[in-house]
């Protein structure tokens, strides 16, 4: 009798359709930037806590190249079975497809699951610089158009675009010196090779704490908790508050229940207290948005960027 029951149970179990039980395989979260970078720093703790909902495991796969577009291009072309997703910054999602020919063009070509975090860059100078406030800096720049040099982590990054916005709003001109990332731009400002730097809050923090750098203005709507003494550009009447946000994204055509499962797991991960603390210390805000809302905002960002990029001559005609 027991044997028969076991047999029946076995037949029943193997007769169930394979798709019934998502997730039955490990989840891969592609981080389209090298290990150790900000995308990696957000993706890895998320993966750790998402393991609760993915008993077979969650792996973070670093797939760097092309400003994240290599990784995203692979994900949009992957099987939409919910086992391959990507954590991608807004620049990868909406700026790169406007600069180059890619297998994805607009926010309709992939499936945003939810938005996770956002952060906004700041303008900083050396602690011993002669400009104590952003007004003094802007006045100096107005007096000598193009003479002051500002390091950014690369052309087309949110830091660079904020700087361009600030120049338009504040009616001044500085020379943008693009580096490839913080590892190169920060020594340039510390060594006095450039006059100022635009960088992420978490990157600047240890050097500000050590009184090597001083933040002048934040490119954010409201003051950042870590930098409560630093005014925002908005407060001073300049419209420059572009942020970087990371959207968890799946290939287009991923079944709705699977997207919901991923969404719920990811939402629980970003609400985990340890994750909240980690992000707060980095000057990063937890910004939860549904997939639908994320898509809407990506479209808005897409169109906003089209204008800036056109003005800078970065878009191919």
């Amino acid at each position: 009798m027991r044997r028969v029951l076991l047999l029946v149970a076995f037949v029943l179990a193997s007769a169930l359709p394979a798709a019934a039980q998502y997730p039955e395989r490990p989840l891969t979260i592609v981080a389209a930037y090298p290990a150790g970078g900000m995308v990696d720093i957000v993706a890895r703790p998320m993966a750790e806590s998402m393991k609760k909902k993915f008993p077979k495991g969650v792996a973070v796969l670093n797939r760097p190249g092309g400003g994240g577009s290599v990784g995203l291009a692979e994900v949009v072309q992957a099987k939409p079975d919910g086992y391959t997703v990507i954590l991608a910054p807004v620049s990868t999602l909406v700026i790169h497809p406007q600069l180059n020919e890619l297998p994805y063009k607009t926010p309709d070509d992939y499936e945003p699951i939810m938005n996770t975090i956002a952060f906004h860059p700041l303008l900083a100078v050396r602690e011993d610089a002669q400009w104590k406030t952003v007004q003094e800096f802007v006045n100096a720049a107005r007096a000598n158009p193009g003479k002051l040099r500002v390091a950014t982590p690369g052309e087309g990054t949110s830091s660079h675009l904020n700087l361009e916005q600030l120049m338009v709003a504040g009616k001044f001109k500085v020379t943008n010196v693009p580096f490839s990332g913080w590892g190169e731009s920060s020594p340039a400002v510390l060594g006095g090779h450039v006059d100022a730097i635009v960088a992420q809050p978490g990157e600047l923090k240890p050097l500000v704490d050590a009184k090597k750098l001083r933040t002048l203005v934040a490119f954010q709507e409201k003051r950042q908790v870590l930098y409560s003494d630093t005014p925002t550009a908005k407060e001073l009447g300049w419209d420059a508050a572009l942020g970087t946000w990371f959207v968890l994204t799946a290939p287009k055509g991923t079944p709705a229940p699977v997207v919901k499962y991923l969404h719920d797991a990811a939402k629980a991960a970003i609400e985990e207290p340890s994750f909240v603390t980690l992000m707060k210390n980095r000057g990063v805000d937890i910004v939860y948005k549904t997939g639908e809302q994320s898509r809407k905002d990506l479209w808005k960002e897409y169109k906003d960027h089209t204008e800036i990029l056109k003005r800078l001559g970065m878009i191919k005609k």
Binding site: G183, S186, L190, A210
Partner: peptide, 26 residues
């Protein structure tokens, strides 16, 4: 300084950040 000059040291920095440290001069 908390500045990574190479991919390997970038991973070390990332590891410290994930552990809640913000390495720098202090």
């Amino acid at each position: 300084l908390g500045i990574p000059f190479s991919p390997a040291t970038a991973i070390l920095l990332g590891a410290l950040v994930i552990h809640g440290l913000n390495p720098g001069p202090l």
